[in-house]
Amino acid sequence: MMHKLAKDDIQSDILGQIERVSGEELNKCYQCGNCTGSCPVSFAMEIPPTKTIRMLQLGRVDDVLKANSMWLCVSCLQCYSRCPKAVSAANLFEALRQLSLRKGESHEEIKDLPFPFLKGAPQQAIVSGFRKFVS
C-alpha cells in the first residue's frame, strides 16, 4: 500500500502531545528492532513496538490508537533496557493509554471483574490494573 507522507501528518498536534506526555523523542528510533525482539508480548500485538514507533514517525496515529498493542504492553521495560538509543516503547504505550483514558474511555469496567479475582488477587494486581485500564 502506498502511503503519502504529508507534512501535516508528521507535525500534527497529536504527535506533539504523544511526545510531550511520554517524554520520548520519536525520531531517535532508528528501527533496529531490538524492542520487538525483546518484547514478551509482541507475538500478540497487532502492531509490535518497532512498527508502532515507525508508524508514529510517519504520523499514522489513528492506526496505532486502534491497535491492541498499548493494552497488551506489560510495562516490563525489556524494550527500553535493550534499546541502543534509549527510546522507551513502554513510555510511548503508557502515553497512548493515557490519551485514551483521559478522554474517559476505560479499557476495562470495574463492574465486569469476576468476584474470585477481586477476592483472591494480590492488591497490587488490582491497583496497577486500574491504573493501566480504568479512566
Binding site: 514478551p40 476495562e108 490494573g129 485500564f133
Partner: peptide, 20 residues
C-alpha cells in the same frame, strides 16, 4: 522475563498471562 504482570486483570488477557 515478565510473568504477565497487571494483565492478571482484564477479560481477554488470561491466555497471554498463561503463555508468559
Amino acid at each position: 522475563e515478565c510473568c504477565g504482570s497487571h494483565l492478571a486483570l482484564g477479560k481477554d488477557n488470561e491466555e497471554i498471562v498463561t503463555k508468559l
